[in-house]
């Protein structure tokens, strides 16, 4: 978090060719809250998440670090320290579930300590029986749980999720949602991109919508502090 429990982003701009995908977007994420980011296909949800993960360079961005203007290299480093991005279809490294979880643990720890942490993560995500299974052969729901368990081991301040429940059956969706609840109660700020808000009825504290490059707040729960003075901020509430 850039302040104690708030992460502020301003002047986020990104264009592809002649299309302005993100147009001076500004928002704040609050610790322990889940923010839904909705929008039509191609609205820029994934782009926004990838920029926040430091995987894509924006045209401009400002995050509050109390250090004045910073160049992208510094911002990227800060973003990578605070955020963790999970792909829509999680990538599993070639190896067992155990190996995949171990990847998220500090390599300097002893083998025993690493395994202890892996075991805790396996238990947390109910993956114990799959610890020695080849991760690439898991079902979509199981891969999602492995990727959440990896994130749990990293304990990021901000979790960025791209359509985490798309293509999942109902049971897998429920399991994923309960793991996301656990992140929430641990104080992690979550930004969750989905084109279908109905998938997350109880989880969401704030609903944001991307429309033609602009960020629109759908409800008015005042759980996210927006830069409401900014000319590009609009509220439908």
């Amino acid at each position: 978090m850039t302040t104690a429990d708030q992460f502020n982003v301003h002047y986020l701009k990104k264009h592809y060719a002649k299309r302005q995908v993100l147009d001076e977007v500004a928002f704040s994420l609050q610790a322990g809250q889940t923010h839904l980011l909705s929008g039509d296909n191609g609205a820029g949800k994934t782009t926004l998440l990838r920029i926040l993960a430091g995987l894509e360079k924006p045209d401009s961005i400002q995050i509050d670090l109390g250090m004045g203007p910073l160049n992208w290299r510094h911002v990227k480093k800060a973003l990578q320290q605070h955020t963790l991005y999970l792909h829509q279809h999680p990538y599993m490294f070639d190896g067992t579930v155990n190996y995949n979880l171990g990847y998220a643990i500090d390599a300097k720890l002893t083998k025993r300590e690493r395994q202890r942490q892996i075991d805790k993560a396996l238990e947390w995500a109910d993956l114990k029986q799959l610890s020695q299974a080849p991760a690439k052969s898991l079902s979509g729901g199981e891969k999602q749980r492995v990727s959440l368990a990896r994130a749990w081991l990293k304990r990021p301040s901000i979790l960025l999720l791209d359509e985490p429940t798309s293509n999942l059956d109902q049971e897998s969706r429920h399991r994923t949602l309960s793991l996301l609840e656990a992140f929430k109660s641990n104080g992690t700020a979550t930004l969750l991109a989905s084109h279908d808000p109905m998938h997350f009825p109880s989880l969401i504290d704030q609903h944001l919508r991307l429309d033609q490059g602009k960020l629109i707040r759908i409800d008015d729960q005042n759980l996210i502090e927006f830069d409401q003075t900014h000319p590009n901020f609009r509220s439908t509430a």
């Binding site: 955020t83 999680p90 990538y91 490294f93």
Partner: peptide, 14 residues
Amino acid sequence: CDRRAWETARTLGA
């Protein structure tokens, strides 16, 4: 090789 491999590694702090 799937580009997500690189991105997953980086986002996991590698």
